[in-house]
Design a protein around this nucleic acid. Sequence first.
DNA 1: CCTGCACTGAAACACTCGTTTCAGTCGAGG
DNA 2: CCTCGACTGAAACGAGTGTTTCAGTGCAGG
Lengths: 179, 179
Amino acid sequence: MADEGQGAGSPRREELLEAAYAYVLRHGLADLSLRPLAKEIGSSPRVLLYLFGSKDGLVRALLGRARDAELALLADLPAGDAAGLLRALWEWLAAPAHRDLLRLWVEGYGRALTEPDGPWAGFAEATVRDWLAVLGRVLPEPAATEALAVLRGALLDLLATGEARRTGAAVAAHVARLS
Amino acid sequence: MADEGQGAGSPRREELLEAAYAYVLRHGLADLSLRPLAKEIGSSPRVLLYLFGSKDGLVRALLGRARDAELALLADLPAGDAAGLLRALWEWLAAPAHRDLLRLWVEGYGRALTEPDGPWAGFAEATVRDWLAVLGRVLPEPAATEALAVLRGALLDLLATGEARRTGAAVAAHVARLS
DNA sequence: CCTGCACTGAAACACTCGTTTCAGTCGAGG
DNA sequence: CCTCGACTGAAACGAGTGTTTCAGTGCAGG
């Protein structure tokens, strides 16, 4: 990496990354600015640049942090049949507590599509692969891709309309046909 | 509207809007800036502000223009059964010629979720409603919401990975179960 | 003690941003 | 001719941007 800054694995860096991550969950990544961010997490632009190398480096670290949160979810899923897995995934996606993370996720996804260079590069494709790997263990193609599409599409619907009942019913209808 | 500028329906405005729309399809909306945009479409920031009132007014007009393109698609769809409709929709979504529009669409969707105020407001929900209205004519709930989810989810997958075969097969599998 | 190293504060640099001010140009209507 | 309104160019304004420079602090190991 050419942009990691000086304190690659330092504890102070982890600490600030965590605080910045919490900040970004609330404010989004789109018009992230160093001065307001630094002020709210009790740091300074100078220090963020020192620890992350550049703003792009910071954004990359934040995106990586978001992906870690996603991978953590996918890691400790109840190992069972496909229907149970999908139900667990949707329960997680629909939980209000995860809404901020998922909004951030959609934002990063959108940016990654329009700007294939820059810090977002590869973010969209990476999450598709991550999820497909999990679903591929319990479903053959094309059912895995279809299940992923249902979850992602229903999530977009839910985030935009807030209608948990309708979107939940659609996912349930899909799951019901699996068994 | 408080932000439409002076030349609400002028021909010059339509002309520049069209040029700006083409520009935005190529460059995305995220870091749109008046000076580079004006330069490339043969105008000036001064004029854009005059015709659209503010940058937000311009962005709103561009988002409206994108939605018009979407509504035009939904309007002249072959009236038939659900399976035929879904196949036609996916064919449109997967067409390389529409990729720029769809990327712009994802970007606007993401921004609308993270910034409920501002010019993006309502964009995400509006497109969900538009599509659901069309699908609701040939499919009952929860099948309509599910079909929308499959199309949207498969589209996200396709835009990120470029794998037309796999995503197309997933949509086809879903459609096949309808009849 | 002293040297090095991780870290930080203050201030400046060199932009770019949306927007405004002022001064026009041009063609149509009275 | 004259005026009015639509439209435009040049330049400036003030704020905010990522980043750099310089000058430190405080604490570890030799």
